[in-house]
Simulated assay, not measured.
Amino acid sequence: MDSLKNIIIQSKNGDKDCMLLMIQKFMPLIKKYSNKLSYDDAREDLIIGFMEIIGDMPVDKSIKFDEEKYIVGYINISMKHLYVKLLKKLIKLSDNETGLYLNTMLENDNVDTSEFINNRIILKELLNKISAYQRYIIISIYFLDLSEDQIAKNLKVSRQAINRTKLRALKSLKEMLLNDGVDFIGK
């Protein structure tokens, strides 16, 4: 059987069977990150990213890649970076969807428009001051009406972890509002 380095070199040279063999070999890693992302096309996005990682891998330029452990380590780290990139994209998309939700609320006739706009500006400023992860959880719970259990399932973490993050975020938001609220209103 060919070494992993040879299989990668053949994959880079267009051998589809070798690329398929690489995908099969690293499918557990792809599934792991796909389950963590938990959106419909996550697996396909990760497979495409994996193929790009293999295509860009400098196996023929480095002596390090003669040992299989370095190749596996490189792929593991590259896949983790890809996962983080896709997660950030997912969080950004969620933020955009929340903006659309807030815009539709403006159309409600029962809302004082000027007060709503002021509150929305303050809310956006406050939400931008917490971490993206905390913002994702707060938006998911309070604007998208997702339960802590649903979010925990989507992110593959415990419900308690979601609850702790929510409570920390709410505490931070409250402190910022109490300490800096006058600054927000004056802007």
Rank of each mutant, 00 (worst) to 15 (best):
N6L: 12
N118M: 12
L90K: 06
L87F: 08
D183S: 15
N96V: 08
L46P: 00
R159I: 07
F184D: 01
L126N: 01
N13S: 07
I8Y: 00
A152N: 04
K12R: 11
D17K: 14
S3Y: 11
R164M: 10
G49A: 09
G55W: 05
V84T: 06
E125W: 02
H81M: 07
Q150C: 10
D41R: 11
F26V: 00
R135F: 03
V111I: 14
V72P: 00
M79L: 13
M19S: 09
D17M: 10
I185V: 15
G186V: 08
D40K: 09
Q150K: 14
E97Y: 02
M51F: 01
I54Y: 00
S62V: 04
K129H: 15
D2S: 10
Q24C: 12
N179F: 09
M27Y: 12
D17F: 04
K85A: 12
V72I: 15
K25R: 15
S158H: 04
E125S: 13
D149R: 04
M176Q: 06
L123Q: 05
E97N: 11
E68I: 12
E115F: 10
L177T: 04
D56A: 14
P58C: 13
N128H: 15
S158A: 01
T165R: 03
K174F: 12
R159F: 08
L146R: 13
D149W: 06
N6R: 07
L87Q: 08
V59F: 11
N13P: 00
E107R: 06
L46N: 02
K166V: 08
K171Q: 15
S11A: 10
D95C: 13
D183F: 09
S62L: 12
Q10C: 06
Y70N: 14
E52S: 11
E107Y: 01
T104D: 08
L102G: 00
K12P: 01
D109W: 04
L100H: 11
K88T: 08
D95F: 11
I7F: 02
D40C: 04
Y133N: 08
I121C: 12
L126A: 09
Y136S: 10
D145W: 00
A132T: 13
N6I: 05
Q10R: 14
T113V: 10
M19A: 09
R168D: 12
D180Y: 01
A161Y: 09
G186M: 14
P58M: 10
N35Y: 12
I141T: 05
Y136H: 15
I30P: 00
Y101Q: 11
K36E: 08
I141M: 03
N118Q: 12
G49P: 00
S11R: 01
K89T: 11
E148K: 13
S62N: 11
I53M: 05
S131M: 05
L90N: 08
K89M: 07
N163C: 10
N119V: 03
L144F: 10
S38L: 05
R159A: 13
A42D: 01
L167I: 06
E148C: 10
V111A: 03
G55C: 09
D109C: 04
N6W: 01
L167V: 09
L82K: 03
F143P: 00
Y33M: 06
S78I: 04
V157W: 01
K156I: 02
L37D: 05
D41M: 08
G55V: 04
S158T: 15
F26M: 06
E175Q: 06
C18Y: 02
Y70T: 05
T165W: 00
S38G: 07
E97I: 03
E67G: 03
R120E: 13
